[in-house]
Structures are given as C-alpha cells and as structure tokens.
Design a protein around this nucleic acid. Structure first.
Lengths: 138, 138
DNA sequence: TCTTGAGCCTGTAGCTACTACAGACCCTAC
DNA sequence: GTAGGGTCTGTAGTAGCTACAGGCTCAAGA
C-alpha cells in the first residue's frame, strides 16, 4: 500500500522511528495544527513525505530548546499565515532567552537553599530536622 | 458565625489572605490530601485553625523550592503514616537537589544555544534566518 | 486461501499543579 | 428586607504530551 522504495512515503510509525518522536505525539501535533494534516491512503492511513519529517524535526528541536508550542507556531508563521520576518524570529528568541535566564536564576536560588539545608543535616535519626525547619519558616 | 477574635478560626478566604495562597488552591490541596479536611460550621463552611495555616505555609514554601506534591507528601509523612526520619528527609532533599542541578545544566545548554543564535541574527528583513537555521539543524 | 500478528485508526482518559468558572447557598450590614 | 459579599459544590480548562480500548487493515507464512 505504501511505496517504501521512494524514501518520502512514510507511515506514522515510520515517521516516529525516523525522528525519534513518540508516535502519539505526532497525532497530537497534527491535532493542534503544528503538523499539517497529511494525505491518506484508501484505508485511511496517514501518508507522510520528507517535508513532514523535516517539519517535525524542526518542531522537536525547538521543543528541546524550550520553545512552547505557541512559540513554535509563531516561528513557523502559523499564527498569521505569513512566514515571520527575521526580526520577529529574533524577538521571539530573545524573549524566550530571557525566560530561560529567569528560570535559571530561580533554580540557582533554590539550589543554594537546598544545598545549604541538606548539608546541615546529619542524616541521623534525631528529632530536629534542619531541612524541615528550613521549609517551615525562620 | 466564626469567631474572629480568637485568631485561630479562619474561613477559607481568611486562610488564603493569611498565606498568600489562591483560595481555590486550598480546596485543591484538601482534595489531594496535603491539607486535612477541616471541621465545618453548621452551614458547611470550612473552619481552619492556626495549625492549618502553619501546614499550608510549609506546603507553599516546599512548592516554591520545587518539591512536587508527592515529595511534600513524603516530607510530611503522609505516604506511610509515620513522620519521616531525618535520613529520609535528607535523601529526598538530595534527590531533589540533583534534579534541580540537572535542570539548571539543561537550561544553561539551552541558554548558550539561544544566545549564540540570537546574536548572529541581524534582525534585518533578510531571507536567511540564523535562528531558524539553527533550529532546523545547521 | 486462510490465518496470525503487527500496525494503524479513532476517541477518550490520564498525568501535574493548579485556576476559573456557574449556580446555589449563606451571612452581614444597612 | 435586601444588597453585596463570601462560601459551597462540581466541573472544565491550561500545557504537552502519553496511554490505553476496541476496531480495522496489511503483509507474510502455512
């Protein structure tokens, strides 16, 4: 049913294996519009092309970089129909970069609190726990 | 109906204001067992005590430190009924600390990729976008 | 040709940690 | 008495997936 000679005709399972994406996630991206609805075989099977694989790989890389699905929609020009300008992409990226940096500094603060309290803890079976005390307030 | 003199008789709204917690979140913590079911007034209104406030503050601080609700259940001894030993608390904290550090290093890698690609971008309205190229897989 | 097992199809439910309603009740102050 | 706030319940929504169930289809082997 599907021509496996021509490299560019893939089932959903093929696409999943080719990109390392979970097979259900592909359907999810289709449902949410990140991936276009692919053509179907007579029996209703999705038929993907190399273009779909490229697009999916783009999405997966962007997700790995922490872009939200909404961000990605913007990066791909799905929000207003037109391909985004370079300036728009840069702006989105910088906003996202700022978010990432904010998250890092949050986590660093958390890290130092956790490290400090954990190190004060003997690990012995004593009544007073410095960790719980630290969380409880002071 | 509720004695507002004695500081330790609080409605849900009072508790929310006193702790800075969203009022709905209190109900959610009750539903999931992090907060015990409080006694009720004749009309069915929840009546909280100072002990509830203390416990809620503990939960909120732990959440701010990034502990999951499951972690917190453990820290409060709600999983096996008994108060956790200091060693258990220390172990949980160190595991969580390791998670936090892993997240930080992930984000730092992401940060450097984003910073590098964004800086290469002129912001001009040119056809080739270094950001998109970077995501697309160089 | 028949069968078997793998793959695909759909819809739906689950996860975390909340948040936000709607519609009904209650309580206080004027 | 009534207006307004507060509270009650249940339910649905958020992001970003993931995991089924129950049914169909396809390819390979006997």
């Amino acid at each position: 049913m599907i021509d496996h000679e021509s490299e560019s005709s893939l089932t959903r399972g093929d696409l999943a294996r080719a990109t390392g994406c979970n097979i259900e996630t592909i359907r999810y991206y289709e449902k949410t519009g990140l991936l276009p609805d692919p053509p179907r075989s007579a029996a209703g099977y999705r038929i993907y092309s190399a273009a779909h694989a490229t697009r999916l790989r783009f999405i997966l890389r962007a997700r790995k970089l922490g872009f939200s699905m909404e961000d990605i929609r913007g990066l791909m020009g799905l929000d207003d129909g037109a391909a985004p300008t370079c300036a728009e992409v840069k702006e989105r990226t910088e906003r996202h970069l700022a978010d990432v940096r904010a998250k890092i500094s949050d986590l660093r603060r958390i890290e130092s609190v956790l490290a400090a309290t954990a190190s004060r803890c003997s690990g012995a079976e004593v009544p007073n726990c410095p960790v719980l005390d630290a969380i409880s307030g002071n």
